[in-house]
């Protein structure tokens, strides 16, 4: 079960990075947003690192040595968020998604998901 959840989370993060990197306008918007984001699925103790640099997003397994933002929730919720099935706002407001970081960075991550998936 944990393995499947971990794989699903990895797939969702890979898709998120791919969608960001194939959106030229978003890449321009993020050109100066250089951040390290720690994605932590606390229920299955699984960590990933998203790096936003010069407009591109890359994904590596494991936790970073230091992060600008930490996005923490269950693997299932994180997977839904990074697949764009739910807006991060919903679990965030319900208290099931925790985000540590500056308000500007929280807004930016939320903005990226809005640009990618909202219609």
């Amino acid at each position: 079960m944990s393995t499947n959840l971990g794989e699903d989370l990895k797939d969702s993060l890979e898709k998120f990075a791919k969608d960001c990197n194939s959106n030229e306008r978003l890449m321009v918007m993020n050109k100066d947003w250089n951040r390290v984001i720690h994605v932590c699925a606390s229920d299955i103790k699984c960590d990933y690192t998203l790096v936003s640099k010069d407009g591109s997003i890359s994904l590596t397994p494991g936790k970073p040595s230091s992060a600008d933002m930490v996005v923490q929730s269950s693997a299932e919720i994180l997977t839904s968020v990074f697949y764009g099935e739910v807006s991060p706002n919903e679990p965030y407001n319900e208290g099931t998604l925790r985000v540590q970081g500056s308000e500007q960075d929280v807004l930016r991550l939320d903005f990226i998901t809005a640009m990618l998936w909202e219609e």
Binding site: N89, E90, L107, A114, E119
Partner: peptide, 16 residues
């Protein structure tokens, strides 16, 4: 505006 429709309802205004 369209993409932010849902977020306008929930984002704390002081952030915007």
């Amino acid at each position: 505006a369209t993409k932010y429709r849902k977020r306008l309802l929930t984002t704390p205004f002081h952030m915007l």
